[in-house]
Amino acid sequence: MNHFNRRKFISAAIAGGVGISLLDSLPSMSNNANGKRVGIIGLDTSHSTAFAKALNSEKPDPVYDGYRVVAAYPYGSKDIESSAKRIPGYIEEVKKSGVEIVSSIQELLTKVDVVMLETNDGRLHLEQALEVFKSGKRMFIDKPVAASLSDTIAIYKAAEKYKIPVFSASSLRYIKGIEAIDKTKVLGADTFSPATLEKTHPDLFWYGVHGVETLYTVMGTGCKSVTRVSTPDTDIVVGMWADGRVGTFRGTRTGKHDYGGTVFTRNGNLILGPYGGYEPLLVDIIAYFKTGKVPVTPEETIEIFAFMEAADESKRQGGKNITLESVMEKAKKR
């Protein structure tokens, strides 16, 4: 699908929502960050402590340009036990890195220049993101952007309304081997990642998003429809791109949990993996904080979540082929 048609798909599917103006002009409209004080929302994920340790180490990598985490609001999941139980320990951990714990997002916003929204519970992201947007501060939103496609769209509509570019990505966008891929020569790809389930989130939104993001990193936008095969242990989602290419995602819930894939190109097949850690993502987050330029377009992030929502709908309908356009139309009506 060419650049124009991809834009046409998104703008038509969410008519009145995230339009071409957002894709073209968000970075130029953004307010300049006034400093390098980073605030974290959500201490219910290891991502928060990893980012704080990297930025606040005694000898941080110069690529982080002096950005430091100065304050954190811990919440955060409150009814997802696997996440909520981490909060007390992670509070103590970030304190050791010199991070102040605050009692509200509003208090946090008075102390920082940019924000990492790390809350593991995607159901809270829209409400929390709106508070940040209203403050005019740049924000990175960790995966999942939200716990529904409709909330994902709403977040990007708010980004347009408040003229604040927002960046969201999984660290699996930076899996080893990606740097060797000439995306203009990709014929198809198969990716895999763990796809553990959480009852409060659509199936793939919780963890399968990692492998789906890897798939989109090499395939790009333009998927028209998906079909899903689902068993208690495994999900296989087959995506049909508008230009005839096929991309698949395999989500695992047994055996060794790992990340990777195979990319089929005009020059031969290339292997992705292993996982490369958080640092490459953090480099892009800091670059975004400095410039306001988003490394991943709203168009691509929205389509990733439409892909996963279409996969859920396919499961509900016994493996029927589901178009991304159909799930986008439903989401915009909610």
Rank of each mutant, 00 (worst) to 15 (best):
P144F: 00
P232Q: 11
H210I: 03
Q317S: 15
E127H: 03
K183N: 04
A180N: 15
V226W: 07
S104T: 09
F51T: 10
S103H: 09
E213T: 10
L270G: 11
T217N: 09
K290A: 13
S103V: 07
Y64P: 14
R334L: 14
I20Q: 04
L324G: 02
A287C: 02
Q106N: 12
G319Y: 08
N34T: 15
V145M: 03
L109I: 10
K85S: 15
L204V: 10
L272T: 11
W206E: 11
S326V: 05
G239F: 06
F133D: 00
S230I: 07
Y207H: 06
I155V: 13
E118F: 15
G42S: 02
G42M: 05
G292K: 08
S148E: 14
R37S: 11
S135I: 04
F305V: 04
K8W: 11
V114W: 05
R138S: 07
L108M: 05
I181N: 15
I40Q: 13
F9V: 00
G273M: 07
Y90E: 10
D190E: 14
T152P: 11
A33R: 11
A189Q: 02
K137L: 06
T119A: 15
T214Y: 01
Y162S: 03
A52D: 01
T234W: 08
L130A: 04
A158F: 10
I153D: 00
D113M: 05
S28I: 12
V294W: 03
P202I: 10
I20T: 14
N32A: 08
E198P: 05
E303F: 06
V209N: 13
V132H: 10
K78H: 06
G244D: 07
S135P: 09
I178W: 07
I271N: 11
G66T: 11
H47L: 14
L22I: 03
I91G: 01
R253T: 04
D182M: 05
K330S: 09
A33M: 08
N267L: 13
L124W: 00
P60S: 09
D243W: 07
K224R: 13
V237N: 03
S230D: 04
R37L: 12
A15M: 14
D203A: 10
A129T: 12
N5I: 03
E58R: 05
Q106S: 15
Y216C: 02
K143N: 00
P295M: 01
G208R: 01
S314N: 06
E325V: 02
N2K: 12
I286F: 03
K183G: 00
K111A: 05
K163R: 15
L55P: 06
F4T: 15
A189F: 09
T297G: 10
E313D: 14
D233P: 06
G261R: 03
Y259F: 15
L22F: 03
V166G: 05
F133M: 06
D235P: 12
G276V: 07
G42A: 09
T119D: 13
I101W: 08
E329L: 07
S30Y: 12
I175E: 04
V238S: 07
D203G: 12
G255V: 12
I304R: 13
V114A: 01
H3M: 14
Y288H: 04
A306V: 02
D65I: 01
I271T: 12
T227Y: 14
R123L: 08
S97Y: 13
V114F: 00
A331R: 01
S326F: 11
K134D: 02
G122N: 07
E179R: 03
A306G: 10
G35P: 15
M139N: 05
